[in-house]
């Protein structure tokens, strides 16, 4: 099981222009928590970003954020602000920074950090309730983050 997971992750990383991927510990933040450079060195895929945003098993952003652009996704949450038009009032760098580690932009925010692998209290192995058996993977991969950034940038009012 574990082995398959690792192998799969390996393949995915290798597929995504390995050389240019910024690891979670290497991300540089600007003064307001923004991250200028793409984590993969290239643009994300907005269509895939839409899926990651909506899927429970992936970003599950809709659990906290509502989005009129996703009329087919039921049960959109209210914990975070509605993100309609966010690509109009936020830059890609700001959105990337919020996704990587929202606490750098909003101190103490409830929003989780999606591209982070250290500094947790009792990190678990997914939703099993158990301790991780290997190194901690970020909730989203560098490619996932870029895909979601690309998707949110399409939301212009």
């Amino acid at each position: 099981m574990k082995l398959t997971g690792l192998t799969l992750a390996g393949v995915l990383v290798a597929g995504a222009a390995l050389a240019n991927v910024v690891s979670p510990d290497e991300v540089t933040f600007g003064e307001y928590g923004e991250v200028e450079a793409s984590l993969t060195g290239s643009d994300g895929d907005a269509e895939k970003g839409r899926e990651i945003f909506s899927e429970k098993s992936q970003g599950n952003c809709v659990s906290c954020h509502a989005l009129a652009a996703l009329p087919d996704v039921p049960f959109q949450g209210e914990v975070g602000p509605v993100l309609d038009g966010v690509g109009g009032y936020r830059s890609a760098a700001e959105i990337r920074g919020i996704l990587v580690n929202a606490k750098k932009t909003f101190e103490g925010t409830v929003m989780p950090s999606f591209y982070k692998t250290s500094g947790f209290t009792r990190p678990g192995d997914g939703y099993t309730g158990k301790a991780p058996s290997g190194p901690i993977e970020p909730i989203l991969s560098a490619q996932d983050v870029e895909d979601v950034v690309a998707f949110l940038m399409t939301l212009q009012d």
Binding site: K56, S63, F75, G77, E78, V79, V110, P112, S113
Partner: peptide
């Protein structure tokens, strides 16, 4: 990185999914 308070003190009354 969520505490009991994040959900049940800061956000009661809100829907999470």
């Amino acid at each position: 990185e969520l505490s009991c308070a994040n959900c049940h003190e800061q956000n009661y009354g809100n829907y999470i999914r």
